[in-house]
């Protein structure tokens, strides 16, 4: 039963990703509106994978990834970046910081489900 943390400031995208993740059997979606909110959720819930936007208020997705990778507790949690930034240098930067995968918007839900399944071993 994977717990999926969706970090997005857009309610539209949170709902859309949540919809897609419901198709992964037994999954539970935890929502966070920015990086700081995500860190709070990480401390209170067991998380198996993080799906994070890059451009968010308060704390962006890249800062969140670097903090997660620097934490001895959360460092092994896979992170998929979902973002409007589609340039190759943005992708390389996110992967260099520690993101496991990079998915530019607008997303194809099948592609996202496949990626998540790959990381949670389904």
């Amino acid at each position: 039963m994977p717990n999926i943390l969706v970090v997005e400031d857009s309610p539209t995208m949170r709902q859309l990703i949540g919809f897609a993740m419901k198709r992964i059997a037994g999954s539970k979606v935890i929502e966070a509106t920015d990086g700081v909110d995500a860190l709070k959720k990480l401390s209170s819930e067991k998380v198996d994978i993080i799906l994070a936007d890059i451009n968010m208020p308060v704390m962006d997705g890249l800062k969140l990834v670097s903090l997660v990778r620097g934490s001895p507790i959360y460092k092994d949690i896979p992170v998929i970046m979902i973002t409007t930034e589609g340039a190759e240098e943005d992708r390389k930067r996110a992967l260099a910081i520690g993101a496991n995968a990079y998915l530019p918007k607008p997303i194809q839900t099948q592609e996202l489900i496949k990626l998540v399944n790959g990381f949670i071993g389904k």
């Binding site: 857009s10 309610p11 539209t12 995208m13 859309l16 409007t84 918007k105 607008p106």
Partner: peptide, 9 residues
Amino acid sequence: LEIVINLIG
């Protein structure tokens, strides 16, 4: 605005 950015691109 969100729909046009995120869903249409």
